[in-house]
Simulated scan of single mutants.
Amino acid sequence: MQSALDPAGHEAQELYLLFLGMCAGGAVVFISVVSLLIYAVHHQRRVHSDRVVARLILWGTVTTVAVLTVLLTFSLALWPGLRPVQAEGQPAIEITVTGHQFWWDVRYQTPDGQAVVVAANEVRLPVGERVFLTLESADMIHSFWIPALAGKMDMVPGRSTHLSLLATRPGVFRGPCAEYCGTSHALMAFSAVAMEPAAFTAWLAARRMPSPTAQAAGLQAFLSNGCGGCHTISGTEARGKIGPDLSHVGSRETIGAGILPNTVQSIARFIKEPDTIKPGVRMPSFRMLPDEEIAGIAQYLKGLQ
């Protein structure tokens, strides 16, 4: 799920080729140096003429420059594929990802810039179609990285950085935060789900509608305990902007930003003791609530498909 050596995207494939090329160039240099070292150790000791010394220096200089030139040319040739830019007028899916301590806000946008779907801790993209991401930070420097799809990109407060992705095969891939950002930095991950274009279009259309649920008691418990002050659930009175958007949360791969499987038991556990699961998280614990009430809220959230 998280390997730069198993590329599933165009940019990751270019990085993989660059890695192989650098390894090959490094191997040439290593073998040459070791060979010269072995020769120097085992060769009969004698004084070489100035001409031989000059030839050795020339050979070493030419070889070094040649290897570095080849590697530089190779890397520059791959560069356009590593950081492709969006052509003017080119239709594209645009996604804005904002890093928070310690979760990810994800917003899918139409070409006019209006947000059509708001999600959290999960990025979905169609296979074979280029996606352009705008990366931002709400607090400190984070780093967005999906090793199987592309290289990493920093998210700097007050600035917007950009990344282009082109998935080449469907799958679910893990993305970590690659810049230390606090106590639970290692517990800040997300899922990247590459889908067939038709499935992605259907998913996007479904996410624009409020998620259906029959757990009225769970919704009432969610609202009465103040959860709606921090979280938004489309189609309800919950309109909080502090924490992740929980609309359709039941359909996500994980909860807690990639650290727990999305099950009723995991949701209940996170509600009860978020500070134990993810130290430094801003969400307060709800240990004071009866287990039955926590279970009702968890079942309601899991039902938001």
Score class of each variant (00 low, 15 high):
Ala138Ile: 02
Ile95Met: 12
Lys152Phe: 14
Thr110Phe: 01
Gly99His: 02
Ser137Asp: 07
Gly175His: 07
Val117Ser: 04
Ala186Tyr: 11
Leu125Tyr: 00
Leu135Ala: 15
Ala150Thr: 00
Val97Ser: 02
Leu149Met: 12
Trp104Glu: 05
Ser143Leu: 02
His142Gly: 13
Leu133Asn: 12
Ala178Met: 06
Val123His: 11
Val193Glu: 09
Arg130Asp: 06
Glu196Arg: 07
Gly89Arg: 13
Phe132Cys: 08
His100Gln: 08
Pro147Arg: 05
Phe173Lys: 11
Met195Lys: 14
Glu94Ser: 11
Ala120Ile: 14
Gln114Arg: 13
Phe132Pro: 08
His162Ala: 09
Trp104Arg: 05
Val193Asp: 00
Ala138Gly: 14
Val116Ser: 11
Arg83Tyr: 05
Arg159Thr: 10
Glu88Val: 05
His100Trp: 00
Glu196Tyr: 04
Met195Trp: 10
Ile93Asp: 09
Leu163Val: 06
Gly182Lys: 11
Gly182Arg: 02
Pro176Ser: 03
Thr96Cys: 02
Val156Met: 07
Arg130Gln: 12
Met188Leu: 07
Ala198Ser: 04
Ala186Thr: 08
Ile93Met: 15
Pro157Val: 03
Glu94Cys: 15
Gln114Ile: 04
Arg124Phe: 09
Ala148Asp: 13
Arg169Tyr: 13
Ala87Gln: 15
Val117Asp: 14
Ser184Arg: 08
Ala186Phe: 08
Phe144Tyr: 04
Val106Trp: 05
Gly151Cys: 03
Pro111Thr: 12
Gly128Val: 14
Ile95Glu: 01
Leu187Thr: 09
Gln90Tyr: 03
Val118Leu: 13
Phe190Cys: 03
Val97His: 02
Thr98Arg: 15
Met195Ile: 02
Pro176Glu: 02
Thr110Gly: 00
Gln114Leu: 09
Val193Phe: 08
Leu187Lys: 10
Cys177Gln: 01
Val85Thr: 03
Val156Leu: 09
Arg174His: 10
His100Lys: 02
Asp139Lys: 10
Ala120Ser: 12
Gln114Cys: 06
Val131Phe: 02
Gly175Cys: 01
Ala186Pro: 00
Gly99Ala: 03
Val116Leu: 10
Val117Lys: 11
Thr183Gln: 14
Glu88Met: 07
Phe102Glu: 11
Ser143Asp: 11
Glu122Met: 10
Ala186Asn: 15
Ile95Phe: 07
Pro197Tyr: 04
Gly182Ala: 08
Leu166Tyr: 00
Ala167Asp: 02
Ala150Leu: 06
Gly175Gln: 04
Thr110Ala: 07
Val106Lys: 03
Leu135Gly: 00
Glu179Gly: 09
Leu163Asp: 05
Pro84Ser: 06
Trp103Ser: 07
Leu166Arg: 14
Val131Ile: 05
Arg130Thr: 03
Gln90His: 01
Ser143Pro: 06
Val106Cys: 05
Glu88Phe: 06
His185Asp: 12
Phe173Arg: 07
